[in-house]
Write a protein that binds this DNA or RNA. Structure first.
Length: 547
DNA sequence: CCGTTGATTGTTCTG
DNA sequence: CAGAACAATCAACGG
């Protein structure tokens, strides 16, 4: 479920109504420039403005089709990609055999503990049930519960009837024919990588496949050891060109495409009225009701912000990010309208303070019904901004994120900001721990749900029950989950290294068949120790949207 | 946000 | 400065 697509508040038709913001419910607030108020150098901006409206928020159709990525691609998020990667590369039940784990289903069945546990363990070897192993393996019974797998049904090359399970023995087998699910042509992307990035659509913010994910498939890369026992994987649904080409896409190239060139530059639009709103926006700061407290903080701080290059000085002196600005509040929109009416009437000239005072009183006296349209527009702007922000975040490189977080940490430490670190939306997700694998397995199987959760449907209470069960299990009973978790961890570390390095490092062919007791295992672990924390915690700078 | 476990990372403390 | 100890975060789930 790509949320980005699911809550487009406006129909495409609505979009066409006007390229400008109107007093109706135009959706097209793009970037929440600050409160606009001032001289109307609007006369104009390429003769487009026949409207009496003196100024407007920058507007562009964030939802317009021409910037929308191919549908086939948009259905897949990075998370899903990762799942797919797992699906392709995770071990099946045979993994345990190959690892030589001493725990057979018989062993476990003979365990003194309860039947349920034996049942849990036996899945690993039960061809039927194995299809619902903890990691994204829908069985015929529980496909609906495998949310992380669902997205594949969105793809034309993944059967929607559940017949294809990437983890099922048939698909995981060494039979390369099983790979013929290859989504060959449909993933052709008409856009070269660069253009694709430049046309990032906020409505599809979760569509970009991280480079690390692609590399897991890329048959031409050096990732796969030629001697790997794994079959060739030649059909990443994500072609090279659909991916953000991270390394070359540095600031410069981004800006050359006009994307996020400045904090007030629209992320997407081609046609836009130049400059006016921008100059406006700057001027507006003095009367802004913008609640970006950090922006205020930055302004106040400026004088003393002179370089105190902390040792090593890889800590940026200022934020490296240029996220889209906050959306205008209902009040800001009202004020914009108010000013415009004043301008239209042309009767008198007001200074900013007077205007704000007067309009403020009027706004306060509005009935809820009268305020409603403004609130609605503000909400639309906020949603658009959120999509834009998500798209923006996806353009950041791991280095960007690191630098920004280093900056934020320094600011926090100095008591200058309370902003928490940002999360890298492109980074591979953390793998599940053994316990979480256990949880997932329960949830994937109705019988276990019933045995362990009883009639309890609340997830929080379920987790208590599951935890109790987990604690009651012996090490032997937990072993399969621990082994699976270990495997996932290795895959994660490899994926993360690929992601952070932008490309597989020399000699880091990833052979997922390596086992914990193999020499390669140790090597990988050692190498990955340099990696750094994602340390996420979302903070988009818009504190008003979260609490 | 709840509620769980466990892995990891970041931070602070101690020798 | 190295390592230990501690704290914070995040993975899944759905209402």
């Amino acid at each position: 479920m790509p949320p980005a697509l699911s809550h487009r508040p406006f129909s495409p038709d609505a979009m066409k109504l006007s390229p400008f913001l109107n007093f109706d419910d135009s959706p097209s607030f793009s970037e929440s420039d600050q409160m606009i108020f001032g001289p109307l150098d609007l006369e104009d901006v390429n003769g487009l403005h026949h409207s009496p409206m003196p100024y407007h928020w920058d507007s562009f159709d964030v939802d317009s089709n021409d910037v929308k990525p191919p549908l086939s691609f948009s259905a897949l998020s990075s998370l899903q990609t990762q799942d797919y990667a797992h699906a392709q590369l995770s071990p099946t039940a045979s993994f345990y055999d190959s690892v030589g784990l001493p725990y057979t289903s018989e062993d476990l069945a003979s365990s003194p503990s309860c039947d349920t546990t034996s049942y849990l363990a036996s899945w690993l070897h039960d061809p039927e049930i194995a299809a619902s192993s903890p990691i994204n393996i829908p069985s015929s019974l529980d496909t609906h519960q495998q949310t992380s797998f669902i997205p594949f049904s969105d793809h034309p090359h993944f059967p929607t009837d559940g017949t294809f399970s990437p983890m099922s023995p048939s698909n995981m087998s060494l039979d390369s024919h099983a790979r013929s699910i290859s989504p060959s042509p449909p993933f052709e992307d008409p856009h070269p990588a660069r253009h694709r990035v430049l046309s990032v659509n906020p409505t599809a913010t979760s569509v970009h496949t991280p480079a690390w994910a692609t590399q897991l498939w890329d048959s031409s890369s050096s990732l796969r050891s030629p001697t790997s026992s794994r079959p060739s994987v030649r059909h990443s649904p994500f072609t090279e060109t659909t991916l953000r080409s991270r390394m070359p896409m540095r600031r410069g190239s981004i800006s050359s495409g006009q994307m996020f060139q400045s904090s007030s530059a629209p992320a997407l639009s081609e046609p836009r009225a130049p400059s006016m709103t921008r100059s406006y926006s700057r001027r507006a700061e003095s009367i802004s009701t913008n609640d970006d407290r950090d922006a205020t903080l930055r302004r106040r701080r400026r004088p003393e912000e002179s370089p105190t290059p902390e040792k090593g000085s890889d800590i940026p002196l200022k934020s490296v990010l240029k996220p889209p600005k906050l959306a205008p509040s209902a009040w800001q929109l009202y004020f914009t309208d108010w000013i415009q009416r004043q301008q239209a009437s042309g009767t008198r000239k007001l200074n900013v303070a007077q205007a704000a005072k007067e309009a403020g009183q009027e706004y306060a006296s509005l009935s809820p019904e009268e305020k409603e349209p403004y609130k609605r527009r503000s909400l639309a702007a906020k949603e658009a901004r959120e999509r834009e922000l998500n798209a923006y975040m996806r353009t950041l490189t791991p280095e960007d994120i690191k630098r920004e977080n280093a900056y934020r940490a320094a600011q926090r430490k100095a008591g200058k900001s309370r902003k928490s670190n940002i999360k890298d939306p492109n980074a591979p997700k953390k793998p599940l721990s053994a316990y979480f694998m256990f949880l997932q397995r329960i949830r994937a199987n109705p019988k276990l749900v019933h045995d362990i959760f009883g009639d309890e449907t609340e997830t929080t209470k379920q987790s208590v029950l599951a935890a109790a069960k987990w604690r009651s299990m012996t090490d032997a009973e937990r072993q399969p989950f621990l082994a699976q978790a270990e495997q996932e961890k290795m895959e994660y570390e490899a994926a993360r290294r690929i992601y952070e390095e932008g490309a597989p490092a020399y000699g880091t062919s990833i052979n997922f068949s390596i086992l914990p007791n193999s020499p390669a295992f140790t090597t990988i672990k050692m190498e990955s120790s340099e990696s750094e924390s994602e340390g996420f915690s979302t903070d988009d700078g818009d504190r008003s949207t979260r609490r």
